[in-house]
Design a protein around this nucleic acid. Structure first.
Lengths: 214, 214
DNA sequence: GCCGGCATCAACCGATCGGTTGATGCGGCT
DNA sequence: AGCCGCATCAACCGATCGGTTGATGCCGGC
């Protein structure tokens, strides 16, 4: 890709409205060309291979093939395309996974037009572009990688937690999982420390915040 | 508005991308004209008064003046415009409030173009258009209006619940809200029955499910 | 082969929670 | 004036929870 060439784009979003908005926006601006669209992660991989775009504008939450998986696969393939994640909420729990997976940038959909253009140009050159909210999340995540809470729950712990969220008592959980009440308590104390909380109510809350439940 | 006249639109959404997408979509289709845009509820009210559109395409979650309040105010004013809610998620907790507030229709943003056009024409004629998911929610809500769980929590109850979700004990909640522990327990038992649960963990879970927390 | 993570169980204790009943005062609505 | 929802408080009880310590067996990585 030379400096003065058009930046070619692939738009990936499950909402037709958003795809149209992005396509119109970039086709009417100088320096860009939209090669195609996709409405889910799997489709995005096909189109990316066929069209070989410079930059992929990618939504994260999509039915039928999530965005994060698509980014991972692109990275694994060593794809030339840079991925610019374009999502709705900055509270998205997939923020960090997406960046870890290899996304070049992360922007919110409510970004003004100019910011979008700038971000795409930056992404095309391989420069990282992050929305302020995401940037601050990142630094705090990097600053404390051993923060209590990023430790993944074991399968059994998640099962116990799911029952807790339904209001099940320890004794009932024990019966339902065919284990003793003592074991249930052990799982609970373990997942409390993993989540960095002190009781079941807070555990349920943080589980929802992190997308473990719900 | 005569039968063969253009249907005039006002687009309300906080995302420039979505606004562009809708504008382009309707301007390039016959039978519609876009009078203007707004990016929040307050602005929407101004534009609606100034432009007098036939139909208002309205997002619900917006910074600086929520969509539901705007719809309420339009209804209160006896505005001529029909409001067609166009939102991202069918799990949105504002679905029913929006309809109660006077929205004529409720569609998801991932609806295909033709469905959007049909819905706008229907809305312009005052006919109700609901996306299937919303429709089924509605019937279940109407079918059992006294179901334990649709009762709204009082302000105090929500405050207590929020602290519970943070792992605060009853005694600590009492101190933090400057009330006695007995009162905290009273609020809790009340919100338990309102939410249809038996303990704080389940209360937190259903609160997240319903969008009361998170 | 050793170590660590996971899952399992036991017994004990204090602290907390949930349920109940009953009561008071305030504000809005009719 | 009367009613109702909301918020406040009290005292009591049994049930449950959370914390701790200690132990066993299995499996996979180094």
């Amino acid at each position: 890709m030379s400096d003065d060439a058009l930046i070619s784009l692939l738009i990936v979003d499950d909402h037709p409205v958003v795809r149209d908005g992005l396509r119109g926006m970039f086709e009417s601006a100088p320096g860009f060309t939209v090669l195609g669209e996709a409405s889910n992660g799997v489709e995005a991989l096909e189109r990316a291979a066929a069209l070989d775009p410079d930059v992929i504008l990618m939504d994260l939450r999509m039915p039928g093939g999530g965005g994060v998986d698509a980014i991972k696969e692109l990275t694994r393939r060593g794809a030339r395309a840079k991925v610019l994640v374009l999502t709705t909420y900055d509270t998205d729990s997939d923020t960090l996974p997406a960046i870890e997976a290899g996304a070049t940038g992360y922007l919110l959909k409510d970004a003004p037009r100019d910011e979008l253009f700038t971000a795409v140009r930056a992404a095309a050159e391989g420069r990282t572009v992050l929305s302020p909210a995401v940037a601050s999340r990142l630094v705090s995540a990097v600053r404390s990688p051993n923060t209590p809470g990023n430790e993944p729950l074991s399968t059994r712990e998640r099962e116990v937690l799911a029952l807790v969220a339904k209001g099940t008592s320890n004794r009932e959980i024990a019966r339902e999982l065919f284990i003793s009440e003592a074991t249930v308590k052990t799982h609970l104390t373990h997942l409390y420390t993993k989540l960095g909380v002190n009781d079941r109510a807070a555990a349920v809350a943080t589980a929802y915040e992190r997308g473990i439940l719900g």
